[in-house]
Design a protein around this nucleic acid. Structure first.
Lengths: 235, 235
DNA sequence: ACAGGCGAAACTTTATACAATCTTCGCCCA
DNA sequence: TGGGCGAAGATTGTATAAAGTTTCGCCTGT
């Protein structure tokens, strides 16, 4: 009766209930319905999804490993609140990994893949036209994941999935303007470079794209002031 | 909210019992006491560590996420058996990430760190002199982890911990000669470059080091034939 | 003799019950 | 009146028991 599992798919296990919980909570976090710092009670989530605490716990541990949830011993799970330092690390890692990923994507180019990428661009444009910021951020992340899948490197794909999840949280936290307009055009140019099998152009486009995303963020450098004050008061 | 400490999920907090189980099983796998494909029964491990299956399960899930254990639905957990293709992916990722890591390590250089690195080199040399291959592989991995810690980038550190664990397994599986002699000298040269704050030299040394490690492996390209046959016969 | 199916045992998966820990609120005392 | 102490409540950590699935052996029929 249960849907057949697909172990060869990229998603580890979407067929089981743990996967559903994980996907649901992830979507809620990435679409900003759950703000950073929010407590994720086990009973609470379990009741929502009609599951026992055992399953909720498993899902939360996976999310903790992905970096979008923090688990504090004897305290519970909370939506992660990436610091500006975390944000810089995440984007540095992406600047390192993603140019290499598009490089491999160029090697794997095929009509089917181009078709899939074009279709995704259409979805992105539609979300943009609707002014749906949540969907835009989500689809933007999925574009990068798609390119990583295309590269065929499971290691890079796994790493990038983590980085994308954290990035989405970071963007929602530290975005300067409400305009998420930066993405689509760049994505189209990247797809174009991939289709023409122009490695250098693809790498360059991806790199400048990432730089622009980070430039849109407001990562206060000395942030320590108020944060340290809060810490001292808390301690 | 006390944010003074950084309670990461898989932090080196070995005080808890899950961490002990994870470390113990990891050591057993990396030291080749548990061969790839070995089944890791929950009762079995639980009895060894005097823990309930709940804790064993948590540890096994973490190991699965690290890539050194495979969990098959309704079948159980098995020691991972990386394919040659996996091996190539792992080393490609290391060639990408580790030069950047040593780059940052150069920025973080300090007498204390140099001291720690030198001490590690001594340990490595001692293990080598004893002809203790298991300890050599383990210490070699720990050297790379040490450099990653020195870089101060938690993202890179997390990624590299995964890559190192898989690498150790790969080396033990596909090593050509029994001589693990390649490592120590290179490590010493890397430390030397770091101490002299020579970025380019450090990157170059790390890269050639990784290349030599991979060159020592026997990664047959069409591997499918006999390996699949063996699987069928074994099953 | 061999192929196919039935059944039991072992294991994983899931749920629930119990224990330990933390938080919070109220009370008492200086 | 303010602060510290303590008990009650709530929540997480752990263990154990019930449920479902797979696998292997055995048995029967051809």
């Amino acid at each position: 009766m249960a849907a057949k599992s697909r172990p060869k798919s990229d998603a580890p296990d979407v067929s089981d209930r743990v996967g559903r919980i994980r996907e649901g909570v992830t979507a809620a976090i990435l679409e900003h319905r759950l703000l950073p710092g929010t407590k994720l009670g086990e009973d609470e989530i379990g009741e929502i999804y009609g599951a026992s605490r055992t399953l909720v716990r498993t899902a939360l541990q996976q999310l903790a490993h992905e970096g979008i949830v923090n688990i504090e011993k004897n305290r519970g799970a909370f939506v992660a609140r990436p610091t500006p330092a975390d944000a810089r690390e995440v984007f540095e890692a992406r600047r390192l990994i993603e140019p290499t990923i598009v490089d491999h994507a160029v090697d794997a180019v095929s009509p089917a893949w181009i078709e899939r990428l074009q279709q995704h661009l259409t979805e992105e444009r539609e979300a943009e036209l609707r002014g749906d910021a949540r969907a835009s951020v989500r689809l933007s992340g999925e574009f990068h994941r798609l390119v990583a899948e295309m590269s065929g490197h499971s290691i890079y794909l796994g790493f990038l999935k983590e980085l994308i999840a954290r990035s989405s949280l970071i963007i929602l936290l530290y975005r300067r303007h409400d305009t998420p307009a930066c993405g689509t055009d760049h994505h189209a140019e990247i797809v174009s470079a991939i289709r023409m099998r122009d490695r250098e152009a693809a790498r360059a486009q991806m790199l400048s794209h990432l730089n622009e995303i980070e430039a849109e963020l407001f990562l206060k450098d000395p942030a320590a002031d108020e944060l340290r004050l809060a810490d001292v008061l808390g301690a």
